[in-house]
Every structure is written in structure tokens, then in C-alpha cells.
């Protein structure tokens, strides 16, 4: 039942930096640095993290919007990185993406009808004479009116434009959709509408989502599993419940404690981190979080921790990349603020 629709293996995405008098490559931005994970068919896996952690880069690398430096992206049994450009274009029929700002990714001079029929045309999904009916059906599905079919993107509000983006992704009948901060720019009341729509579509069409977001509230609402990234690495991955109720990595804990809760009676203890995220150009050695971690030791500076599970403390499938899961849990190690 739970087959993996997407398997990412040792994915690396480095962006060269040019400098010096002759403009040669002097270093790399290690945006994504050797990550592996799977997405199960029909589930929503969310990637969360702060800006610069590599979450959006991961989504783009999977779709080969940027060509990854290294690794394997196995989608439905095929390595996407080994496909020719042409085959990759065909493959995008099954693997769509919705961006944060739909306005930037749709042609402002096309009407909704043109946008949707062009998408179907490119992937050749339906005979021409059936497309019109399908476009109307799609518009209804995403909650737009049929009478809006000949309108241009600027005539819609932000939430409606995001619905156009969703309709375009759906038009080619994909198996999986990567949502890159798709609801981040929307007001709360509109965001809730779009989130509910995404959930409904997932049920109706058995879609798989890779949901990239910085908003942990949204992530808790929509995900089955959650993956936390920090500076190009996975620090923790788990079932939603396990991650939110029983976070094990100090970074995940900090992240959760930093979000303001809309309930003034819940004045909780906040862990406030020192400093900024270090530069991904020369990331810290060992555990990348050690420069800001209240528990860091010499071992953390030297050794890169592996993602691991401790079955007495964590659910099956819950893994965290920390040397001291047990010691922190037992209280043996005290935070050093």
C-alpha cells in the first residue's frame, strides 16, 4: 500500500561563487548538502526550515529547475537526473509545482483559458475538443467561476491567482505536486480556504504533496510527515504527531518554541537562539547547528551526526541528527545559555 513515489538519495546542490581578479570559481554555496528521504504515495511530506536552509532548493532540484550537483532522484522507479531534457519535460506531467507567487509564474498576457489549455497542450493530456469542458471543470474544482474563464491574472486577487496556479498544476493530471511556499503570501482567511482546497484535492485525486513551508502552523495542519532542514542538511524527520509532540533535535525544539502562540494564557518558556544562521558558503564543521546549540560539545564540532532512531525514545520512522538525543532527554546534559 505505502509505496515510495519519490526517493531522494544523497542529493547535493552547490552553487559556485565567482571572485578574485579573474572571476574564477572560489567556493560553493552548499545550499543542499547530501540529503536523502522518501515520499510515500498519497501522503504529504513537508519540508520546513528557515530561509537559506535549502528547502526550496530541494524542490527545485527534484524538478531539475536547477540541475543538481550530485545524487539520485527516483520518481516512480525512474531516476529523474538521468533523463534527457526532453524526457524530463514529459515527466513533469506527473510531477507539478505550485510557487509562492503565482503571478510571477503565469504569463500575465494570457487568460485563464489560455493558461490552462496551454498546459494541457504541452503535455498533450486530452484531445483538443475535450479541453474546453475540462477547463470549466477544473475552474469549478478550484473554486473559480466559469464566467471568469476569459479574464487575465491581474483581474484576480492573490488567493484566486493561487487557485489558477493550482488549476494549472491539476490540468495535466499529476501524481505529485510540489508546493513551494504556496500559501505563504496569503492572508489568514484566504490561506485557510486554499489549505482546505489542497486537502480536498488530495483526497479526491489521491495526490502526493511535497509541501515546502516556513510556517509550522500550516505544516502541522497539512502534513502526514515532516522533515526539518537546517543549513542544507536534514536535522529531523518524523510523523507529524511525533515531531510536534516529541521533538528530539535541539533545533526543532527551538523552532517550535520560537513560534508565537495565539493564546495569551499559554506563556511558555521560549528558547531564544543566539546569533544568526551561519553562511552556507563555509558551513560549520561537524553538526552544523553547533554554533547556536545550547548543548554543543567538542564532539559536535568535530563529528557530523547521523540521522538516527532510538526506539525506546522515538516512534518508528522518527529520526534526528543529534549525538546527544539520550543525554538531553534524560536531563544528563544541561543547556548552556
Amino acid at each position: 500500500m505505502t509505496t515510495d513515489i519519490l526517493k531522494v538519495r544523497n542529493l547535493k546542490q552547490y552553487f559556485p561563487i565567482k571572485g578574485g581578479i579573474l572571476g574564477r570559481k572560489v567556493n560553493d554555496v552548499k545550499a543542499v548538502d547530501d540529503i536523502s528521504f522518501e515520499v510515500k504515495e498519497g501522503e504529504t511530506l513537508s519540508i520546513v526550515g528557515e530561509s537559506g536552509c535549502g528547502k526550496s532548493t530541494t524542490g527545485r532540484a527534484i524538478l531539475r529547475l536547477d540541475e543538481p550537483t550530485e545524487g539520485e532522484v527516483d520518481f516512480q522507479g525512474q531516476d529523474l537526473l538521468a533523463l534527457s531534457k526532453k524526457d524530463m519535460r514529459r515527466k513533469r506531467k506527473d510531477l507539478q509545482i505550485i510557487f509562492q507567487d503565482p503571478y510571477a509564474s503565469i504569463n500575465p498576457r494570457q487568460t485563464v483559458r489560455q493558461i490552462l489549455s496551454e498546459a494541457m497542450e504541452i503535455q498533450d493530456v486530452l484531445p483538443k475538443d475535450k479541453r474546453e469542458a475540462r477547463i470549466k471543470e477544473l475552474m469549478k474544482t478550484v473554486g473559480l467561476g466559469e464566467h471568469q474563464i476569459d479574464r487575465f491574472p491581474h483581474e484576480f486577487s492573490g488567493g484566486q491567482r493561487q487557485r489558477i496556479g493550482i488549476a494549472r498544476a491539476l490540468s495535466v493530471d499529476p501524481k505529485m505536486i510540489i508546493c513551494d511556499e504556496s500559501v505563504s503570501a496569503l492572508d489568514v482567511s484566504i490561506q485557510a480556504q486554499v489549505l482546505n482546497l489542497l486537502k480536498k484535492l488530495q483526497r479526491d485525486y489521491n495526490l502526493t504533496y511535497l509541501f515546502i513551508s516556513h510556517d509550522l502552523g500550516v505544516v502541522r495542519h497539512i502534513s502526514d510527515r515532516v522533515l526539518v532542514m537546517y543549513l542544507g542538511k536534514i536535522v529531523e524527520i518524523a510523523d507529524k504527531k511525533s515531531l510536534f509532540d516529541n521533538p528530539k533535535h535541539p533545533y526543532t525544539k527551538t523552532l517550535l518554541s520560537a513560534i508565537p502562540v495565539p493564546d495569551p494564557t499559554k506563556k511558555k518558556e521560549q528558547i531564544v537562539l543566539k546569533g544568526d544562521v551561519p553562511s552556507p558558503i563555509d558551513p560549520p564543521t561537524g553538526c552544523r547547528f553547533h554554533t547556536r546549540c545550547p548543548f554543543a560539545t567538542d564532539k559536535c564540532v568535530e563529528e557530523d551526526p547521523e540521522l538516527r532512531n532510538n526506539d525506546s525514545l522515538m516512534q518508528d520512522g522518527h529520526r534526528a541528527a543529534c549525538h546527544y538525543i539520550e543525554e538531553i532527554e534524560s536531563g544528563e546534559m544541561k543547556p548552556n545559555y
Partner: peptide
């Protein structure tokens, strides 16, 4: 309609 990280919500009221 606010999705929260500290509690479970089934469907968001919109």
C-alpha cells in the same frame, strides 16, 4: 482559520 502548530485541528473553519 489560523492553522496552529501547538494543537491539532481537523479542518480549518474558513
Amino acid at each position: 482559520s489560523l492553522p496552529r502548530h501547538d494543537i491539532d485541528q481537523e479542518e480549518l473553519e474558513v
